[in-house]
Design a protein around this nucleic acid. Structure first.
Lengths: 201, 201
DNA sequence: ACACAAAGAGAACCAAGGGAGAACATAGCA
DNA sequence: TGCTATGTTCTCCCTTGGTTCTCTTTGTGT
């Protein structure tokens, strides 16, 4: 898991320990006063770091107040197995996530989850039907990364990404399929591939 | 590695014994104060010596705080990583096995070990150069299993096996290679493939 | 006495952490 | 429609911490 800086740890500890002192989730201003900060902007930077570490709930549109993430990541619990991903269908979620033990080396610095691959669209990159992939939550990627991308808000797919100013191309690794081109607005990156696990019978 | 000087041993002992006193890894300045030093530069020299002795984690880019090198995973907690296997060469053993954390699901019922694959001979089965494979120790296999086979007592290779009464065929999964045929006596099975781990950068 | 290694002080440099504050965006409200 | 509270983004700046020097002191072996 990513290393929090000292200040970030202090702020998280404060939120955790004083959650009950507030009858509503504290705003940036209130937190600033409590922590002795004079600038909302400074606090905001730290809160963003806590969000990307998965310790604080991301701000929903129009949401007020900073609240802790419902289920802080338990190191001992492992990585959540969320469901299956097939090219072009929404992620098929398992009703209640199981937690898997995954080698640390396969994890990124941000929170991660595991999906099971369904289909052969990445077979030429050695990703087979039934493999489990470790995905690091992330909303941007470098060209050439393999990503979980949500297209038009509903169809999730695992593909190699190529981003140009005008369009986003999702490349399968399967000669019988063709690359898909979209407008940047249509494609939302949900994570990048960090590791792969395969079980042989 | 070179012998530690007396002061270096003292500093290492201090780090080891007081690791729990700090909620963050101590900085050079903090350590200086704790050790009665007035200069970061002096301490830095000692810490560098400890790093090159492998007792302290090397500083990653931008990392802050001095932390002890992670103690290797205890044998009972992981699977030994024994070395690299390339088609047709003996297994290249690492001098001293590291132990890796491997998901239980990838293990068999018998003792297992991990090898790193070297080469593309199984690429069409989705086993790429650099992948790590989990091998269950075993001296026999079913036809179609992928096995670690020792040929003529020296050349180890990872291939799909086909056993007939008169001969043993080792099939690569690479169109540019051909299957190898041997007498049953020439081939000794050293384990069967149970799992695969791949790390993406 | 001399050479040498270990150890420390301190200065200088650079990158990352952290904070201040302005400016902007958006929601809720009078 | 403005006003206020709040979240967001930005730039500027200072501080902190790791690194690299040089110089000095001290202890030890020949």
């Amino acid at each position: 898991m990513s290393q929090l800086t000292r200040r970030q740890q202090e702020i998280y500890a404060y939120l955790r320990d004083h959650a009950d002192d507030f009858d509503h989730p504290p705003t940036h201003d209130e937190l600033c006063r409590a922590l002795g900060l004079a600038s909302r902007g400074s606090l905001h930077k730290h809160v963003q770091a806590l969000i990307s570490a998965g310790l604080v709930e991301p701000m929903a549109r129009g949401q007020r107040g900073i609240r802790l993430a419902a289920s802080p990541v338990e190191p001992e619990a492992g990585i959540p197995f969320l469901g299956r991903i097939a090219a072009g269908r929404p992620i098929e979620a398992v009703p209640q996530p199981e937690y898997m033990q995954v080698p640390d080396e396969l994890l990124g610095s941000k929170p991660c989850y595991v999906l099971q691959v369904c289909g052969d669209s990445m077979i030429e990159d050695g990703i087979l039907d039934g493999d489990r992939v470790v995905i690091e939550q992330c909303d941007r990627a470098d060209n050439g990364d393999i990503v979980v991308a949500l297209v038009d808000g509903e169809a999730a797919t695992l593909k190699r990404i190529e981003q140009t100013p005008g369009q986003v191309i999702l490349h399968p690794a399967n000669a019988s399929m063709t690359a898909q081109r979209y407008l940047p607005d249509q494609v939302q990156i949900q994570g990048v591939l960090k590791g792969l696990l395969r079980k042989y019978p």
